[in-house]
Nucleic acid binder design. Structure first.
Length: 715
DNA sequence: AGCGTGTACTTTTTT
DNA sequence: AGTACACGCT
């Protein structure tokens, strides 16, 4: 990589603007002052962003290091960087392009000491956070059966996204008992994070904002650095991110935000749609550009998307259109159950592949990760290659987490959470009793756990325990010194050997255990790639991997497989053949968002996102019967299906227009009470009432078939 | 201390 | 249905 000052980039204006429509060109050429780009799905916003950056460099003589571009995922950042590099070459490497979180890590690494942290700080993943919360609740003597640690963590995270610190939280909360518990845990939790030199995801943003607010000179330096700021997916920014952007852009006010209120799907994570809706109020001099031409989908798909989203009230109106023609109708399949739904997908995928298509053209989208299982099983049976994004991923595997914990402790010896994870893996005869005593000892002496282990002989342990602890401490100290001269890969190899971690699996009698080695080898591939790319420190490697999102984690190789992911994970992506499954009330929209109109509107946004992923063909499906947690459920078809224009849709599958002929002695299935037999019939038509004797505990009940979804059981 | 069995519960979506 | 956790046994 060259370190020379890059030669001024010179590209013809025509080259940059080539092939762009009127609005896109305007967005590229509006370089000064605040700019709001309302970009409908598939309207080429990435292209606008990349060319705008190229334009700044090539036509306005802006230096690359004065440009900041924030994206939603690391993958998007990488892609954008490549596309800018294609236009302007080497200069692209000096532009900061990253997610909010990665950007904050970069800033915090430089400025850590201003906040009383060391720059080798750890980043807690959700698992680590949960352990930390539990430890805090234990320390504070809270009954975790009474106060759910998950809810407590949730509240703390929400507070951080709103820039509410422990003190504010305490004074604001207080209504419910859980709130006051959360307030105390919050304080304790922050204290713990401080003492182990760690940030959680939310802290990365929160603390950066605090840094800028408390240290005007630091803020000023970054304001000077980032004179031209771009923020993608602005509708999904939360209060903390909003504030961060506001601070950074406060001086030069060259802020370009891109977003689409219809694609706001992260309210539950603190995202506030007002950020985009009020942009013109925050920046009165702002220019607004609307991108409505879609380059992705057929008009059938866009008309469906437009029709659905019309039902939302809180939005900026726009209407997507495309030059692609009408295209194929949308297929809507009424499946009997999840197996039938999967069979439908398989049939359509095979049809597609049979006529010359590829598996990789097909993608299945669902509301919740748990829905993937039924489809996965069916794919396995039918020998359809598939790939699941998200859910349980590589980095969630136990062996990977263990190995990462070793790396974390090496990088940051104060990281007690990771230390506790691996202290007895592999077995070192250091049990819970010993750990407890060491923790007390550390606490009494104001030292961290690892230091306490170094002084184990003073901690009043048994002779055997002392020896085991000292031996472990020596191992970890050796590793700590070892890291200096080695690349991440070399260190990892050595670590696996010295700790006996590899050996533990190699010698395991269980095949399943030995298979875990493959995952560890896979991790070595990841470190090799990292070393080759940038030869950073252990802490850099850890930060990079922990900030990856599910879509980021997809391996570069173009697997020819059907992709499966949540609708959330699909944002920003596009697929020729798209299946959206589980279109049922309480699945989608999800039961937990059905009690508020905001909740429903956000679900509808999600529906809009899902529909607009499809390029050529969209298949929707729902199940009339579904088994959840081993319980049979019957859900009405999703309300979003009613919002689709009927002439765009081709229906197939089970026909429920036919009303079953009820009769005494007929066996039926009820959504809650299961299987029963009709004993008695009274009334007629809508007033018809059946007396049904159910199996076991439910006994005999009166049911109106008009109001309940009863199904006849064959044979 | 470690293993095995029994019981309860499922936390939408994620950086 | 599957899993995580708790308790009790060796």
């Amino acid at each position: 990589m060259t370190t020379e000052i890059p030669a001024t980039v010179r590209i013809q204006k025509e080259t940059i603007l080539q092939g762009m429509n009127q609005q896109q060109q305007e967005a590229v050429e509006t370089t000064e002052g605040p700019l709001l780009i309302l970009a409908g799905a598939g309207s080429g916003k990435t292209s606008v962003m990349t060319r705008r950056i190229a334009y700044l460099l090539a036509q306005c003589s802006i230096q690359p290091w004065n440009i900041l571009a924030i994206t939603f995922t690391n993958k998007a950042a990488k892609e954008m960087n490549e596309r800018v590099a294609n236009l302007v070459g080497d200069a692209a490497s000096d532009i900061w392009m990253s997610t909010f979180h990665s950007m904050c890590v970069k800033i915090l690494r430089r400025e850590a000491e201003h906040l009383g942290f060391e720059n080798n700080f750890s980043i807690l993943d959700p698992d680590d956070q949960m352990s930390a919360i539990k430890q805090c609740m234990l320390d504070l003597n809270y009954d975790m059966k009474k106060f759910d640690p998950f809810s407590v963590l949730w509240k703390i995270s929400a507070a951080k996204n709103e820039l509410i610190g422990p003190d504010d939280f305490k004074s604001r909360a207080g209504k419910s008992l859980l709130d006051s518990v959360a307030a105390n845990v919050y304080r304790e939790y922050q204290y713990k994070l401080n003492s182990i030199n760690a940030f959680d995801f939310d802290d990365l943003i929160f603390k950066t904002v605090q840094l800028f607010e408390d240290q005007p000179d630091v803020l000023d330096a970054y304001q000077e650095k980032f004179q031209y700021i771009h923020v993608d997916e602005y509708q999904d920014t939360n209060r903390a991110q909003y504030k961060l952007v506001k601070l950074l852009a406060g001086k030069y006010r060259n802020l370009c935000v891109v977003g689409d209120s219809d694609q706001a799907i992260y309210r539950w994570r603190g995202a506030d749609i007002s950020n985009i809706l009020n942009f013109e109020r925050d920046y009165p001099e702002a220019k607004v550009i609307l991108l409505e031409q879609n380059y992705r989908s057929t008009n059938t798909i866009l008309q469906a998307a437009n029709a659905v989203i019309q039902h939302n009230a809180r939005r900026k109106d726009k209407n997507l259109w495309s030059a692609k023609g009408q295209g194929a109708p949308i297929s809507l399949y009424a499946a009997l159950d999840q197996t039938d739904e999967a069979a439908y997908i398989i049939a359509k995928v095979q049809e597609h592949v049979g006529s010359g298509g590829q598996f990789r053209d097909c993608t299945v989208l669902y509301r919740a990760n748990a829905q993937s299982r039924a489809i996965e099983e069916a794919f396995l049976q039918a020998a359809i290659p598939y790939k699941i994004l998200g859910g349980m991923t590589f980095y969630d595997r136990r062996e990977i987490k263990d190995v990462m914990a070793y790396l974390k402790v090496t990088a940051n010896p104060q990281d007690e959470i990771s230390l506790l994870r691996i202290v007895n893996v592999p077995k070192r005869n250091i049990g819970i009793g010993t750990i407890k005593r060491l923790l007390d000892f550390a606490h009494e002496n104001g030292i961290n756990l690892l230091e306490a282990m170094g002084k184990a002989e003073r901690a009043d342990l048994g002779a055997k325990a002392t020896e085991a602890v000292k031996k472990f401490h020596l191992l970890m100290t050796d590793l700590h010194w070892l890291q200096e001269g080695l690349s991440v890969t070399e260190f990892l190899q050595e670590m696996l050997r010295r700790t006996g971690y590899r050996e533990m699996y190699e010698t395991s009698p269980q095949e399943e255990e030995r298979n875990r080695l493959e995952n560890i080898d896979e991790l070595l591939t990841v470190t090799r790639a990292f070393d080759k790319r940038r030869r950073g420190t252990l802490a850099d490697f850890l930060a990079e991997t922990s900030l990856l999102s599910d879509t980021d984690k997809e391996t570069g190789k173009k697997d020819n497989a059907v992709h499966m992911m949540t609708m959330h994970a699909s944002k920003g992506l596009e697929f020729p053949l798209t299946f959206v499954v589980g279109m049922e009330e309480s699945i989608f929209p999800h039961a937990r968002s059905m009690d508020s109109s905001e909740g429903i509107e956000e679900e509808r946004n999600l529906c809009y996102v899902a529909i607009t992923r499809a390029q050529e063909k969209l298949h929707l499906s729902y199940c009339t019967e579904r088994t959840i947690f081993g319980q049979l459920q019957m859900n009405e078809p999703s309300r979003f299906l009613d919002e689709l224009p009927e002439d765009l849709v081709e229906r197939s599958g089970a026909d429920f227009a036919v009303i079953p002929r009820w009769a005494i002695g007929l066996r039926v299935r009820h959504p809650q009470w299961g299987i029963g037999v009709i004993m008695e019939m009274t009334g007629e038509d809508d007033e018809l009432e059946l007396e049904i004797t159910f199996q076991s505990k439910h006994g005999t009940k009166k049911v109106k078939p008009k109001l309940t979804k009863l199904r006849v059981i064959e044979n």
